[in-house]
Amino acid sequence: MNYILLFLAVVTGYIVARILQKKDLKNMEVFMAFSGAFLLSITVFELLPHVFETPSKSIGVYIMLGILLQIFLEFFSKGAEHGHIHLHSENKHFPWILFLSISIHAFMEGFPISEHNNLLAAIIIHKVPVAIILSFFFISAGYKQSTTLFFLFFFALMTPLGSYISTHYDLVHQYETQITAVVIGIFLHVSTTILFESSKNHKFNLSKMTAVIVAIVIAYFI
């Protein structure tokens, strides 16, 4: 069921993108702020205590590696993981670099998902707006529908695949803490970037601040 829900998050994003107009994307900023705050809260409340059950400086090293990995991936994904993407409309070739970078990100997301945490909900809430923005810009840039669907289909498979591998392969279990620490670094970078970008020019926005507070409270009590 978890795999299906993760896949459907991207499908939902594509369907919504087909319905939305460009002006409607501005309303996504509040949802993005909520998703960023919720992902950050789940990371802080659940994943961080898990990896630091046995405190070790090396865990901090893996977290920093995750942050650096996400920074590296964003050189190629153009920030698609946190809702920003710029495609060149004159280039209709399949965007392999974008596909590979965002697929690696999505693949890594799946590893820490388990029945012992609420990360599944956080990733679904994170994936829907990202899928909406990805889909919308693919459509707006004039890519063929087959190209868009191919991209989104395999992108949708990556997180369930990561979750499946983490669950069924003993080798991954041996390095569970280290892998989770790397993913924590990825989540910390992505979620804080979403929150930073949701408050452009450092202007106070009551609706976004409310969304952030609500996300934190929900993440704490679930």
Rank of each mutant, 00 (worst) to 15 (best):
L5I: 09
L6A: 07
V10C: 06
V11C: 13
V11H: 03
T12G: 15
G13F: 09
V16P: 04
R18D: 11
K23L: 04
K26E: 14
N27V: 10
M32D: 02
S35P: 11
G36C: 11
L39T: 14
S41T: 13
I42Q: 08
T43S: 14
T43P: 08
T43I: 10
E46A: 08
F52G: 00
T54L: 02
G60W: 02
G66M: 08
I67P: 04
I67C: 13
L73C: 06
E74T: 12
E74H: 06
K78L: 10
H82I: 07
L87P: 06
S89N: 06
E90T: 07
N91V: 00
K92L: 04
H93T: 04
F94I: 03
W96N: 02
I97P: 00
L100F: 15
S103D: 02
F107T: 02
E109M: 14
E115K: 12
E115W: 03
A122Q: 07
I125W: 06
P129E: 08
P129K: 09
F136A: 04
F138D: 02
F138A: 04
S140P: 00
A141P: 05
A141D: 08
G142M: 02
Y143A: 02
L149S: 09
A156R: 01
A156F: 04
A156I: 03
M158N: 02
M158R: 01
P160G: 05
I165K: 04
T167V: 03
H168Y: 14
Y169I: 15
Y169N: 08
D170V: 12
V172K: 01
H173S: 15
H173M: 12
A181Q: 03
V183P: 06
I184L: 05
I184P: 05
F187M: 11
L188H: 08
H189S: 11
V190C: 05
S191D: 11
T192G: 09
T193G: 09
L195G: 11
E197P: 00
S198T: 13
S199W: 13
K200R: 13
N201V: 05
L206V: 13
S207W: 11
T210F: 15
A211Y: 11
A215M: 12
A215G: 10
A219L: 10
